[in-house]
Design a binder for these strands. Structure first.
Lengths: 249, 249
DNA sequence: TAATCAATTGCAGTATTTTGCAATATATTT
DNA sequence: AAATATATTGCAAAATACTGCAATTGATTA
């Protein structure tokens, strides 16, 4: 039996029952538990399911955890968000992406700055509700349970009909050579649409992500106008990005 | 049984009853109290619920936005929401309105029921993220800061392009003669669009609102197919509504 | 086709996690 | 304060996970 067959069978089982036990699968497919474990490990790495002790559960099943309160590397992200607010102008029209860094930006928007702000992200939209001078426009669509953002054709189409001054986006991976990449195809499509809808694109990215890459490409580094990390702009870690036509903050 | 299953079951119980006892859970799930205690401890650490002496209590809904606090007449609204879930069918396509009663419905959607659910409400969308079997579609638009829902031309237009089996709506005021009315013109327009997009419309309404009216009219009572209050269907307070062609639950 | 290399798989030994139990401590109620 | 209920702690058994390794398979190259 081919590995792919097996993995499909596992995914099928997970989709059907929201959960599986390694031992059950092993018996059904007549392979060792170790093999199933390794399969599940791979599928987890590919974000197709979530591996747990004793088995696996579907991504939606666990989505409670998406409501996480603890933000990883909060301090760095706050620093990035603070720098980003420096780009904002009174009366501007911006887009804020999903992700914890962008959420931090939403949180730190100056309370007296008047803005029109588009977003796909439920948490960002929520955060923006607390800003009396920000007109919030949510771009609707199917909601991704993991990312808590609108995705799909509808969201893409809505994006195609707007043009913002600045978009602030995050990325899963960034590399000076390979550009911005993600492990999720849908997300890549969406980000492309966001970039297209922006006069200028600002990448918010903690330095930890620098020089990493994944499967699907969002855009080249040059498609970004400004890159903001928590580092000082002259930090050596940013050297590789200096050749490109981007501003580093 | 996987730990994740158990924890989800616990969260479900907590969501349903707002408070549970460890011993009850232990019996229901057929595990030791110690195990339940440990699960609850973890869930508490993850901010999914709050552990108290002898059991656990629900956090309310949106934990990261401190706005939720106390919902007025929660008990009545929970009762209404529970009745409403009885109308749901596997694979159905529904719309859930904003407002605390509808939010309560979203919260109480059975965890294993597969649904497609449209909404305009950010809190409802958030709540639905916790339901693995619910496909959530947010109807985008300008976000109203007070109501926390999408409004405006865009939202209206999106509504005009869908048709759902059931819509569950709230209302500011309801009267057997004057029908459903609101304080806010924009909201009225939106609700009209919702009703138009529904094969059947279900009104969720605490009895306190019966026989009240305001400035702008959403629709006649007859436009509603089913009205759900926290009262018994044969309660005298509902007499005035019996002449009309609506079902009372 | 034969030879070679990389990937896959099962196994054994060891480490880690989970779970229930018992003893003790703390909290709640009467 | 006594009685009861709930928490905490440490522990041991069982289940599960991880690691390295060898046998096998499958694909690639010569």
């Amino acid at each position: 039996m081919l590995k792919e067959e097996r993995q499909l069978a596992i995914l099928n089982e997970v989709a059907l029952h929201n959960r599986v036990q390694l031992t059950d699968i092993a018996e059904i497919l007549d392979v060792s538990v170790d093999t199933v474990r390794r399969d599940v490990k791979e599928l987890d790495a590919d974000n197709k399911l979530r591996k747990v002790h004793g088995g696996a559960v579907s991504l939606g099943f666990i989505s409670h955890s998406a409501r996480n309160v603890n933000i990883y590397a909060l301090e760095e992200k706050t620093k990035i968000a603070e720098k980003a607010t420096g780009l904002l102008k009174e009366g501007g029209v911006i887009f804020i992406d999903g992700g914890t860094t962008c959420l931090e930006l939403a949180r730190l928007l100056p309370i007296n700055l008047q803005l029109t702000c588009f977003t796909l992200s439920l948490p960002v939209a929520f955060e923006l509700l607390t800003k009396p001078n920000v007109e919030v426009i949510f771009i609707g669509g199917n909601i991704s349970k993991e990312a808590q953002i609108a995705i799909g054709a509808n969201a893409m189409h809505q994006l195609s009909e707007i043009k913002v001054d600045y978009s602030f986006i995050g990325t899963g991976y960034v590399d000076s050579l390979y550009g911005l990449t993600e492990f999720d195809w849908d997300i890549v499509q969406l980000k492309k649409a966001v970039i297209k809808a922006s006069k200028k694109t600002v990448l918010l990215c903690i330095s930890e992500k620098l020089n990493s890459q994944h499967r699907y490409k969002t855009c080249d580094i040059n498609a970004i106008n400004t890159m903001i990390t928590e580092l000082e702009p002259d930090n050596n870690l940013l050297n590789l990005f200096r050749n490109h036509d981007i501003r580093i903050l």
